[in-house]
Design a protein around this nucleic acid. Structure first.
Lengths: 338, 338
DNA sequence: GCCGGGCGTCGAAGCGCTTCGACGACTATG
DNA sequence: CATAGTCGTCGAAGCGCTTCGACGCCCGGC
């Protein structure tokens, strides 16, 4: 274990000089710097993280809280997590992975121990029990997702309301008058994770404005559940000609079951999905979809956190990413439409 | 920021006493302990992670290196990552998330800086470039996956060779004589990640022993690719009556395309998958499958790492988890079989 | 009644780094 | 030519914790 002192001795300078070479916080003459850098390389020196954290009260670590559940939108989460890790590294930070399991206790532990300099919290619920603690902590925090009350918080999320509206518009333009929304699993609504509700709200409002009828049904991501949901939808609204799906796991079952029922996509029914690009392009039909910009969300979250750490960011800031609808092969003019 | 010294003053004891109360490394009388614990609670004290790491040269952090690619077996990885995080917490460790992006440099950085006490590496390639560094590091390391040479390494993995053999046996018993293997994407084989090859090897060997013909084709997880693969398989071996799939993303396309071609599962063709339980039970047909025990792998990896840290584990230890085949509704007797 | 040995507690010495003030050696300025 | 300012470097003081040796104290044994 090479220490800074050994590097200093090897280079014939004092410890503080080595430190300043490393941090660049004071000017160092070129020859000295080179000598020090050479010694560092030659000895294979790596600063000790603990000592550095203790002395500077900065750990250069960003904590990321991911939900414990592995049953939902996993690819999205993973993509966010990886984007967070990658972006954090590019800013000189490492990422500490916390699971929701510990709940608020994890927040307390991390902020209390100085383990991390900032915190990124995923899967925020509308009335999240971690919020009060996050408020109290002097640690910069960024939420991915939107709680009910965003006062004093920094949040990043896809603008799901606009997403819903966008889907409604697209389908209305194509002449559809009866749209069915296949939502997330009931559990998602029960947890009040916000995004599902917001999509629905956007859909409802815009559909209302455009005179389109909307039917919403929650749905698990299995074939059985999709089968039931589908029957109920067509029983209740036989004139349904379009679907909006927000549950990744439900997409394949939906397409598959529609096909089995002899309903062609997009000739008989149109389908618009809210899902990651990859899912949309790899489904059995190339799906018209609004992408969930997971990478972008992760990246933004880190950048906001870093900005807050540098003191250059406003206290409160809600970043809603504008949705983009990509037309592919699953949506077309409504059957009876002109 | 409450410090240990303040707790000590508040409780009327010395700092070392508080430290010993916290660590339990020396006996403390009950009244003193209670007084200290009470002060800790009252002041809301949390030990500073950096100071602790510096003084004890233990960070209580386990580093987890996950592959950067988000294109493959993502749910499995996520499940492993979460199991690692959860298990680590239950042993008093936090988890640092590293992406493969930095490659060997990340290993050097983490081991050099004392950021983590141990390291868990996922997605190990047969001739992984990180291996020499991991060997050199005095940090305990556990690999999830099997490199070509395991000398001196601790590894955890599903026994994919046995998995392949198990699939072959199951299908042979049902009377199938021609089996097609739908493998991972070509990129997986190019990276030499081992597990795909090992499954194939197990399949080949056992199939050979049982007199069953085997055809292997790599396949991307898309419908187009699956479509092509399927045609080529039936062109080459029209008598194929069974499939083994190891690519999660290929499962839905496979089932869907078979159905479209009018081949019933399991009446005309049987399908056996190697995938997480959840995928097997949520597909359009409940799949006979060998589960990938992601949680178990994550848990084991952490436990091995912790054991190594405690000094109670052998240097070299390869843990191969025995595969279990669960018969569901996608496999049945071969059409012509007695 | 005296001595050896636990047991419980304390003081002090670091762990390796950052950072602040100080200080010598220059350069620019009037 | 004296003086103020700048630049590059150093020394020392911690950051908050762990841990080792030391030191009373009280107990039991003879």
């Amino acid at each position: 274990m090479v220490t800074l002192a050994e590097v200093a001795r090897h280079a014939g300078v004092s410890a503080s000089t080595v430190s300043y070479v490393l941090s660049g916080k004071r000017s160092i003459s070129a020859p000295t710097r080179e000598r020090v850098e050479h010694s560092i390389k030659e000895l294979g020196y790596h600063p000790n993280a603990g000592a550095r954290a203790l002395a500077s009260s900065r750990s250069n670590i960003i904590a990321l809280m991911v939900p414990l559940r592995t049953d939902m939108y996993v690819p999205v989460m993973m993509e966010i997590a990886i984007a967070v890790a990658t972006t954090a590294r590019s800013h000189g930070y490492d990422v500490l992975l916390l699971t929701g399991e510990e709940g608020p206790a994890a927040v307390r532990r991390v902020t209390g121990s100085g383990l991390a300099d900032a915190m990124i919290v995923m899967d925020v619920e509308l009335e999240d029990e971690r919020l009060p603690l996050l408020h109290a902590a002097r640690q910069p925090t960024v939420l991915i997702g939107l709680p009910a009350d965003t006062v004093g918080l920094t949040c990043v999320d896809l603008d799901f309301t606009a997403t819903g509206a966008l889907c409604a518009e697209h389908l209305a333009e194509l002449g559809h008058r009866e749209i069915a929304v296949v939502g997330e699993a009931p559990a998602v609504y029960e947890r009040h994770t916000g995004f599902a509700e917001r999509t629905l709200e956007g859909l409802r409002r815009r559909a209302g404005e455009l005179g389109v009828r909307l039917l919403h049904r929650a749905c698990e991501g299995s074939y059985e559940s999709m089968d039931g949901t589908l029957s109920r939808i067509f029983d209740e609204r036989p004139g349904t000609t379009a679907f909006v799906v927000q549950n990744e796991a439900a997409i394949d079952p939906l397409l598959s079951l529609l096909r089995r029922q002899g309903r062609a996509v997009p000739e008989d029914v149109s389908v618009v999905a809210v899902c990651p690009e990859q899912v949309a392009t790899q489904a059995s039909v190339r799906l018209t979809s609004v992408a969930i910009p997971a990478q972008e969300m992760g990246r933004r979250a880190v950048e906001l956190a870093v900005a807050k750490l540098a003191g250059g960011a406003p206290e409160e800031q809600v970043t809603l990413l504008a949705p983009e609808l990509t037309v592919r092969s699953s949506s077309g003019r409504a059957p009876g439409a002109p």
